[in-house]
Design a protein around this nucleic acid. Sequence first.
RNA 1: GCGGACGUGGCGAAAUCGGUAGACGCAGCGGACUUAAAAUCCGCUUCCAUCGGAGUGCGGGUUCGAGUCCCGCCGUCCGCACCA
Length: 833
Amino acid sequence: MTTRFDALTADAAWQKVWDDRQTFAARDNSGKPQSYVLEMFPYPSGKIHMGHVRNYTMGDVLARFRRMRGYEVLHPMGWDAFGMPAENAAMEQGVHPGGWTRANIATMKAQLKRLGFALDWSRELATCEPDYYGHEQSLFLDLLAAGLVYRKESSVNWDPVDMTVLANEQVIDGRGWRSGALVEKRKLSQWFLRITDFADDLLDGLGALEHWPDKVRLMQENWIGKSQGLKFRFDLSDGETVEVFTTRPDTIFGASFVAVAADHPIAQALAATNADAAAFIDRCKRGGTTAAEIETQEKLGFDTRITAAHPFDATLRLPVYIANFVLIEYGTGAVFGVPAHDQRDFEFATKYALPIRRVVSDGDHTDPAFDGTEAYTGPGTLVNSHFLDGMDIEDAKRAVITRAEAGGWGHGSTVYRLRDWGVSRQRYWGTPIPIIHCAACGAVPVPKDQLPIILPEDVSFDIPGNPLDRHPTWKHVACPACGGDAVRETDTLDTFADSSWYFIRFASQPKDKPFDKAVAESWLPVGQYIGGVEHAILHLLYARFWTRALKHMGMLDIAEPFTGLFTQGMVTHETYKSADGRWLSPDEVNDGIETATGTPIVPGRVEKMSKSKKNTVDPTGIVDRYGADAVRWFMLSDSPPERDLPWSESGIEGAWRFIQRLWRLFDGDAAEPGQGGDPALDRKLHQTIHGIGEDIGSLAFNKAVAKVYELATAIERAAPSPSRDNAVRDLMLMVAPMAPHLAEEAWAASGQDGLIADAPWPAVDPTLLVEDEVTIAIQVNGKLRDTLVMPKGAARDTVEAAALASDKIVRLLDGKPPRKVIVVPDRLVNLVA
RNA sequence: GCGGACGUGGCGAAAUCGGUAGACGCAGCGGACUUAAAAUCCGCUUCCAUCGGAGUGCGGGUUCGAGUCCCGCCGUCCGCACCA
């Protein structure tokens, strides 16, 4: 009768058909409504992992679904191909970063193709190729011309062994993550992008991103970190001034000291003549930066012997300290301390016996002597504050700012946590920054007709440092301005620059420019972007900035790059450790025993798949064993997509069994043609079509999968009829986005024309969505006691009478009439006894 | 410390508007088919129990009615972190 679904043969056959026919190539002017579905492009690290499979399966289901709904869908794939791992591989294995990267791309591309994703491979791009990064260089020059790029001396983490700059995340306990060398702070000239120019706009724009997770919007909001307050100057006893920033100008009469950061000019100046000050500053810099260290670190200060005049009473002199808890990067790098109303200031004042003066009443206390054990930061009324007395905090803030502005010693000010984006990296495997340094002309942009500046291939990684910098010839060029001897910039761009505009290049990729404005705008913004939450801040913020910068320059009129964002959960797997603490792979364990040694194991938590915990599962072997559709099905089943998905052998086998079950249903023999309708099945079918459409549209794939199971069961149990044949055919269409190979095979086998990938989504008959009979719950005092089947829309009286007539209810009410009756039409009757 | 999310059977989960808690899947148990096994199909499967009762982390509250709303706790996970 029926055969088994031979996934391996079917997968290859249909993938070839899609390829040959260019089924998923997006046409720029098809006349259909356009839809852009994008998953975050992968870094070509070697092989794809289950996280990729899950991510791309979700995007694929949506892309295929939208095609069936009549959209021209752009669903591209590419490679975030620059980055450190390629250089590490070069150092460790003696391979060239380019060769390593391109080989990985080939491997991973084959793996993605094996899963049958509906991708437009004609638009594939890799950021490490000159036909991508050359255009990025051009955009960098545009940003430079628009005043959005500048060069500044900046302090960086320098690894003296590897001779390179490290990102903050690469510094672990003050040491380089590779070399283990103590990291030094070095001043280097670096290129910066003016992301802070757009801080307010990036913040305001979040409000309109209603299809983003709240969590991500909040993370970006906190990252931008807007604070409003007052910047003002203190006159100092040495004739200088110091500017401070505060969000609590209302507490100014509670000030008892001024504190500056160790790197503040005042501190640096003092250190030049005062050895104790210099020693203190050194000590501050040695302080750890881990969470625990900051938590327990004592507030330390160094009294400069300088005093500051209180702006409202020059006879009041505040001591000026250098303090370890003041950050040079934030605000002005200097603060005034109000111990009674700021916890850090409180700790500092307690240690150095400085006055602690109450200026905000907590409702119970108003006297200046503050006797709490911690600072009071709650709401209240101003006290002991001259002209502010009696005001609430907000009024007092405004009053102080008004006086400061009138007196010319301060002004209302907004401060951001967000810093400008430093994009210089002292690395080889990145986009060369298109600048030439000339002794006479300074930093000169490379003329656009000389782009791309191509990375030299003949480089070595046998000694530390930047191979571009020590290349014998590459950097030596003539100055484009004066023709004299000059050198190229040897830094490359942060790889986050590459991913800040790749989605635009996917939409439009002319040879002679980064993108065509009209074509790009026809596809953008990305309607649905899917990726890991680890990119919630940096990548997504940089891409939003880049889009705004392009708009600012008139190059692309798009407000936001991604209007819909979905952050999917991770794929997890159980972990095990041997009795002596080695991580064990789950297949080294059998029934609580380590197979190799026969000793009991220690089960760990279910955690994200990672090589170090030995709990990864390689997709390749799984796909070869179960076929692409079973893997895709498992990725969509059970767990909601935003939550973690626990990998299990029984889970993938269950998916495989269901694929076979669908095949038996699709391939069933039609010996008994059947006659007449099956209204119940018709109704179930249309409710399912409607429900699955809603579920896929809202990315609730686990719910869509459950509905497929239900409908499959209903069809299996239905007698042969045209309704049943119709339901089988529509079920093929509904599983086509999720299990496309099976669906194509079944579609062809059942004699349908064309590809199911090109077929339209089945239409819903709205009249079939409503049941004609409903089950009504009968409650007594809110507790379910009986149920009742009634025609839909039955009158209240009828329902009430039927409920009261129920044997069970009669018994429970014991002859007494209910005190109150609540009837919810078509749902329930609640009798209050 | 600040901010956020989450907490439902043995497990993954569903319940979209405050209206029958546990759909669907996994695992398990029983049965059919088979010489046998696998596969497949059918049934059972929140807990305690005889009627019946209890039950969505814990304690309160609002309501005819709470997994869902409010208040207070506890726990887990995530992000940021001396941000003035």
